[in-house]
């Protein structure tokens, strides 16, 4: 079953037409990679899925985005609820200037949990799922900003999964990281895909092949081709896709 569907999605920032009719389906409990040259609209598409673009003053959209069949832009929908269900990991790790513990507990607390034991248990669980627990268990009270970039990014993932989202959006989550941290995050994605629907933007073709089941190739605000990752990289149907993945442009 498809978890996310977008139908003829058009996005404008002021007069700039950024996404030009995106129609795609993103299936449940799999990893979908979004690839394409810089400026083609991958981040914009991703940020449309949790309505992060609403924060941009002159953002306008047409068409539909459905989550489990419901229009996420419906006026009846609560944006905070949507973002709880559709979590996001950003390109640059952005932990809060709080302790490691408080970072992970944050989402739980704002969603009304106040049982200390429950929170502590959930924090531990999330940090374990994010493969960070062993590195931080004896310094949970230290500031998260004292962690390395790779640790910070795993903390941000822990923070996101602590609130039990259904979908996780990742916008180039490894682009600021060294190869070892990148491997850790990729392993983590492999682990998480059993329970979560993951959409990951990446500029790294190897990463796309390593972690994703499906890949969509974006170009100039349109999806040129979507397919199984092992198909699209081996026998792309479109010339433009082939040019891109073989590094002939972009």
């Amino acid at each position: 079953m498809n978890r996310i569907e977008s139908k003829n999605l058009q996005v404008y920032f002021g007069d700039n037409h950024i996404l030009k009719g995106i129609t795609t389906e993103i299936p449940k409990n799999t990893v979908t990679a979004l690839i394409g040259p810089s400026g083609c609209g991958k981040s914009t598409f991703l940020r449309t899925l949790n309505r992060m673009n609403d924060l941009i003053p002159n953002f306008k959209k047409e068409g539909e985005v459905l989550l489990d069949g419901d229009d996420i832009y419906s006026p009846r929908l609560d944006v905070a609820d949507l973002r709880k269900k559709v979590g996001m990991v950003f390109q640059k790790p952005n932990p809060f200037p709080k302790s490691i513990f408080e970072n992970v507990a944050y989402g739980l607390k704002i969603h009304g949990h106040d049982d200390k034991e429950f929170i502590a248990q959930k924090v531990e669980e999330s940090l374990k799922s994010a493969a960070l627990w062993n590195e931080v268990e004896d310094k949970l009270d230290n500031s998260a900003l004292g962690l390395s970039g790779g640790q910070q990014q795993r903390l941000c993932i822990a923070r996101t999964i602590a609130t039990n989202p259904e979908v996780i959006l990742m916008d180039e989550p490894c682009s600021a990281l060294d190869p070892i941290s990148t491997t850790k995050i990729e392993d983590l994605i492999q682990k998480l895909k059993k329970e979560y629907t993951i959409i990951i933007v990446t500029h790294n073709m190897q990463q796309a092949t390593r972690v994703s089941k499906y890949t969509s190739f974006f170009l100039h605000g349109e999806i040129v081709e979507s397919n199984f990752t092992d198909k699209i990289f081996v026998e792309p149907k479109e010339q433009k896709t082939e040019d891109y993945i073989t590094g002939r442009f972009g």
Partner: peptide
């Protein structure tokens, strides 16, 4: 990025400001 991190977790604007 702090504000986005908070809003992205489903916090309201006021929670984001206050917390």
């Amino acid at each position: 990025s702090y504000r986005e991190g908070s809003l992205g977790l489903g916090a309201t604007k006021w929670q984001t400001i206050y917390k």
